[in-house]
């Protein structure tokens, strides 16, 4: 294709081709310190919906190795978002080496905290706040569980901040690098933040899962233990490839829920949540 960018995020390599220069320039800038893959695992194509739409009201069709029929085109101004969505989609639909959990993940001393929950539960915000307190950020979208070792691999892609989360992240990490503000996307206002250099530099180091957390924003602070059976059900729901992984997925998930203590935490605000997580960490 006319414009190309290749990047490796954790163990996953991507090749992004585009009919336009702008999305590739944005990716090249924000992923500046990430390595290039030897062999991309997935190919993404940002294509004009019709040949003339390269110039007239440019509109990006999201294509690649894996596509969803309902993936609607996006305007060129939201090219970075299109690329990020398409990369996530490839991994979600095509990933077979690791059990994928829709979870955020931070690490300390080689041990990882995995946080998962429905959209709005705050898993992404929490990971960002913990990273600001010195934890290593491993990712806010997918945690990659290796079925052979049980270890979690980092997937520290750009952090996608939404609406009020943008100002909160700017306040917490004034030194971080941010992408352009994308207004009025299908998800509201979006701005991408580059994970800190330490997290990117250490992204090839996997960690042992040590805590599974199910955060829930908007209630008084409360922590309750979650039995392994409930974790099993919750995590099959939170995995995009559990079924496709077959026996390897079953083995990885059964081991994860049996070996890793799990807690549901309700929290009223970010500071309280960080305190709750660190308390659980000390008594794990």
């Amino acid at each position: 294709m006319r414009h190309v960018f290749c990047v490796r995020i954790g163990p996953i390599g991507f090749r992004v081709g585009s009919d336009w220069r702008a999305p590739i320039d944005a990716l090249s800038d924000l992923y500046r310190y990430y390595p290039a893959p030897n062999l991309p695992d997935f190919t993404v194509r940002l294509e004009a919906t019709r040949p003339w739409r390269r110039w007239i009201r440019p509109s990006i069709a999201i294509a690649g190795d894996y596509t969803l029929p309902e993936a609607a085109p996006l305007p060129l101004a939201q090219g970075l978002l299109a690329a990020e969505m398409a990369m996530n989609l490839q991994l979600a639909l095509g990933g077979r080496r690791y059990l994928l959990l829709h979870a955020s993940c931070v690490e300390r001393d080689g041990q990882a905290v995995l946080m998962t929950g429905e959209s709005g539960a705050g898993k992404s915000t929490l990971a960002t706040l913990l990273a600001a307190k010195g934890w290593r950020f491993m990712g806010d979208e997918f945690a990659l569980i290796d079925p052979d070792t049980g270890l979690v691999h980092a997937f520290p892609r750009l952090i996608s901040l939404k609406n009020a989360g943008i100002a909160a992240a700017l306040a917490a990490r004034p030194d971080a690098r941010f992408g352009p503000l994308l207004k009025d996307t299908p998800k509201g206002d979006i701005r991408h933040m580059v994970p800190d250099a330490l997290s990117v530099g250490a992204m090839d180091e996997p960690a042992r899962p040590a805590l599974l957390l199910y955060p829930h924003y908007g209630a008084a602070s409360e922590t309750r233990g979650v039995p392994a059976s409930e974790s099993f059900v919750r995590l099959t729901q939170a995995s995009t490839n559990y079924v496709a992984m077959g026996e390897a997925g079953f083995g990885a998930l059964a081991r994860l829920v049996r070996e890793t203590p799990a807690h549901a935490i309700d929290y009223p605000d970010g500071a309280a949540a960080v305190a709750q997580v660190e308390a659980l960490w000390r008594t794990r």
Binding site: G13, P37, L39, R96, R97, G246, A248
Partner: peptide
């Protein structure tokens, strides 16, 4: 890298 990717494809 090719061998690893193809092993995944065989498992799938």
């Amino acid at each position: 890298d090719v061998a690893v990717l193809l092993a995944d494809a065989r498992a799938a």
